[in-house]
């Protein structure tokens, strides 16, 4: 077979277009960032304006200034723009009904991603930086959010109070500090300003064990915002030996289907050199291997 010849070819020419009184006025307006429509004989407003309406009736020549915003009537997403396209990134073609107009204008929507597009969405006009007296003086339309950003930024200095400070300092030393109410003898972890039952400060500090009984728990399988761990993981209530109420912590070092209410657990501490004023010094609680505690013995803590 003989070889076929081939060469590149570009058809290019800039025409000189007469725009007439209606389209010309519209495009001239765009230079000054003015958006206008024209009124028809039967009282409708068309934007972009035309000299004759779809029935062939001459439009009136009465111009109406419009807001630079509108509603998407239909659209198409272009993931890979062609050279000729007005935007060099993914965008949508759309028919946009300008507010106050009865027809729609073809233009593009710079929405970033297809999932932001929907029929009926509100868009606003973005003007081109350099004007050329063409429809490209409208650079594109962009999604109008029904929301406005409401940023709040406030800088605080917090302190945790005396009792909680004592508790955190204890953790820094590898101790779990509780507060004992002198009257009831109950030990609260952490210590607090008022015993819930007597109302008096739990001001006598005592050290409680870093082991105890797992009373109840949940296996967390859901990802959520702000989460530090990858699900699934176990979170449970532990009544430490020497304490009269539970603390909450992670349970690990055991398959999830072997975690039981009443299981004896002990703290797994971080290496000592990493200890700070934080409960995070304890990585998690793990089984001690001791026999389970009977339900009746921890039922009052549920």
């Amino acid at each position: 077979m003989s070889e076929i010849l081939s060469a590149p070819y570009v058809l290019e020419y800039t025409y000189t277009r007469s725009t007439g009184p209606v389209v010309g006025r519209f495009l001239e307006g765009l230079r000054y960032e003015v958006l206008e429509g024209v009124r028809t004989a039967d009282g409708r407003v068309l934007c972009p304006p035309v000299e004759y309406d779809e029935q062939g009736e001459a439009t009136t020549g009465e111009f109406v200034q419009l807001r630079p915003s509108g509603t998407v009537k239909t659209w198409s997403w272009v993931e890979e723009p062609r050279k000729s396209h007005p935007l060099d990134r993914p965008f949508a073609w759309a028919l946009i009904q300008i507010d106050g107009a009865d027809n729609s204008m073809l233009h593009v929507v710079d929405a970033g991603e297809a999932k932001r597009m929907r029929t009926g969405m509100r868009v606003r006009l973005r003007w081109a930086e350099h004007k050329s007296g063409t429809i490209r003086d409208i650079a594109c339309f962009e999604p109008m959010s029904p929301f406005m950003p409401g940023p709040v930024h406030l800088e605080y200095e917090v302190n945790p109070g005396q009792h909680y400070s004592a508790y955190l300092r204890g953790l820094q030393r590898g101790q779990i500090i509780g507060g004992k109410d002198p009257e009831s003898g109950k030990v609260y972890v952490p210590p607090r300003a008022a015993d819930p039952v007597t109302g008096r400060p739990t001001s006598e500090y005592v050290e409680v064990a870093d082991r105890g009984v797992l009373t109840t728990f949940t296996i967390i399988r859901i990802p959520f915002e702000g989460q530090k761990l990858k699900p699934p993981y176990c979170f449970g209530a532990i009544v430490l030996d020497g304490a009269d109420m539970p603390i909450y912590h992670l349970i690990s070092g055991v398959p999830h289907d072997e975690i039981r209410m009443g299981m004896r657990v002990k703290a797994k501490w971080k290496p000592k050199e990493q200890w700070q004023t934080s409960l995070e010094n304890i990585l998690y609680f793990e089984p001690t291997g001791e026999p389970d505690v009977p339900f009746e013995e921890y039922e009052e803590h549920l």
Binding site: P160, L168, T216, T218, I222, F235, Y248, E280
Partner: peptide, 19 residues
């Protein structure tokens, strides 16, 4: 100084329901 969010919205109530 506050314990960080470990359990999420249901994390407090799930152990109670187990109880």
């Amino acid at each position: 100084f506050q314990p960080q969010l470990v359990a999420g919205a249901g994390g407090y109530f799930a152990p109670l329901i187990r109880s």
